[in-house]
Design a protein around this nucleic acid. Sequence first.
DNA 1: GTCAATGCAAATCGTTTGCATGAAC
DNA 2: GTTCATGCAAACGATTTGCATTGAC
Lengths: 145, 145
Amino acid sequence: MKDNSEVIAELKKIVKQKGLKYTEQREIVLNIMLHANAHLTAEEVYNLVKENYPESNIGIATVYRALSFLEEVDLISSIAFGADGKKYESNDKSHHDHLICTKCGKIVEFFDKDIEDRQDRIAHENDFEITGHSMQLYGLCSSCK
Amino acid sequence: MKDNSEVIAELKKIVKQKGLKYTEQREIVLNIMLHANAHLTAEEVYNLVKENYPESNIGIATVYRALSFLEEVDLISSIAFGADGKKYESNDKSHHDHLICTKCGKIVEFFDKDIEDRQDRIAHENDFEITGHSMQLYGLCSSCK
DNA sequence: GTCAATGCAAATCGTTTGCATGAAC
DNA sequence: GTTCATGCAAACGATTTGCATTGAC
C-alpha cells in the first residue's frame, strides 16, 4: 500500500500545530481512509488496519479515537446511513451526495450543482451560516427493482 | 391531551387488516407522536409517555416496538441526525427537509420543490426507483453565529 | 523527563430479545 | 381459548472511558 504523502504531510502539520504527538497509529488510520473507495464503519477500518498492517498491534479504541480526531480536523467526514451506524470517508475527493439501494446496500455517489445552489439559497433565506450538509436518496437500484 | 381521531382510526384499520391486536400502548405512542412538534428519540417518547400517561405502566421496550411498528406502517418516519441516534416524527405533515444548527441543535424545516424535482431526475438518470430521501443542511442559526 | 497517546478491559449507551404473564379477539 | 403484545430483565453491539504503560518530543 503506497502512501499519500501530501495528505500525510497535512496531518503532520495539524498535529504539530496543536502541540500534539504524531503517532504511527493516526497515520495508519488516515492512510487506510485515503485508500478506501467505500464508506467504512469504525470496525471495518479496524479490520483493514489489522489486515494491511498486521505488525501494528493497534486496538479498536485507538481506531475510534483516530477517526474522531481526523474528523475533527476535517481530513475525513462521517455520515450515518440507516441502521449500519456511522460511516467514514476521506475528504480528499470532491463533495458529493449519495443514492442508496435499500435492498442490496449499494451506494452510488453523485453531485448536482443546482441542488447545491438551492441549498445555499435556502440556508441564506433562513439566516443560517451553512457548514455542511448531507443528502441521501433511498430506493431500489437497477438490479434490485 | 386531545386525540387525533382520524389518524387513530387509521391505525385501528391497519392493525385489524393485519390481523393484529389493537392496544392502548400503540395508541398512546402514536398520540404522543401526533402532538410532538419536534423530532424525538425513542427515549424522549418514553419520557413523554410517562409524563402524559402516568397511569399507563409502559416499558421502554414497548415504546421501541411501537415506534418500529408505526414506522413500518408509515404513520411515522425516522431520520438519523448526527450523533443523537434515530429520531422520529409523525407523517401527518407534508414532506420536508431539515436545517440543523450544530451549536444549539435547533431544527428548522423547509420544503423546496426544485430540489425534489432534481432528486427525481438524478434517481432516474441512475436507474434508481426512489422510495424516500433525507436531506440535512448543517450550520449555525441566526442566534448562534 | 514530561505529557499525550496507546492498549486493554471494564463501563456505558441505545436498542433488541427471551420469556412468562396479561390482554385482545 | 388462542394468539399477539406487554413488561421486565438479561443480552447485545457499538462506542467510550479509566488507568497503567509506552512512546513522542
